[in-house]
Computed example of a mutant assay.
Amino acid sequence: MFHFTIFVTVPKKNCSLFREQVKALFRITNLEQARALKNEILEQFSEEKGYQIASCTCLDEGFEDAFQYVIVGQAHTRIRSTNLLERLNQEVRRREKVVRIFPNTASATRLIGPC
């Protein structure tokens, strides 16, 4: 949620450099390097009119929360999602809407399961 808020508040015109630097910031897996890059971004863009209030303030205040995945245990370059499980649940709901009432557990398993 944090990075979407930053990109929403960025001016549409001439923002490609800012966007690329923030994206590069989130690819870093070392917390100290990420802090250094964040400070560089803030120094570079905090004086510009469209970036100072919303984007730079949001980046500064939400940085530690956004980088908790680096602090806790082993750093991951990609955060995992539950999209696969959500898709499976959606498919089960789609199939069960057709039947509505199952006479027993075995019939539900046959309809929903791969067998």
Rank of each mutant, 00 (worst) to 15 (best):
8 V>Q: 10
8 V>I: 13
10 V>I: 14
12 K>L: 08
13 K>Y: 09
13 K>G: 03
13 K>Q: 13
15 C>P: 01
19 R>T: 13
19 R>L: 07
21 Q>D: 12
22 V>E: 02
22 V>G: 04
24 A>P: 00
25 L>K: 05
25 L>G: 04
28 I>E: 10
31 L>S: 06
33 Q>R: 07
34 A>Y: 05
38 K>G: 01
38 K>V: 01
41 I>R: 04
42 L>F: 08
42 L>N: 04
42 L>A: 08
43 E>L: 14
45 F>W: 06
46 S>Y: 03
48 E>C: 02
50 G>P: 04
50 G>I: 02
51 Y>Q: 02
54 A>D: 08
56 C>I: 12
61 E>R: 14
62 G>P: 00
63 F>A: 00
64 E>C: 00
66 A>K: 02
66 A>N: 04
67 F>I: 04
67 F>E: 00
71 I>A: 07
71 I>W: 00
73 G>C: 04
74 Q>F: 04
76 H>K: 14
77 T>A: 06
79 I>Q: 07
80 R>G: 07
86 E>V: 00
86 E>I: 01
87 R>W: 05
88 L>F: 13
89 N>G: 01
89 N>I: 12
91 E>I: 11
93 R>L: 13
96 E>R: 15
96 E>M: 15
96 E>Y: 04
96 E>G: 00
97 K>Q: 11
102 F>N: 03
102 F>T: 03
102 F>Q: 03
103 P>F: 02
104 N>S: 14
106 A>K: 12
110 R>M: 10
112 I>C: 15
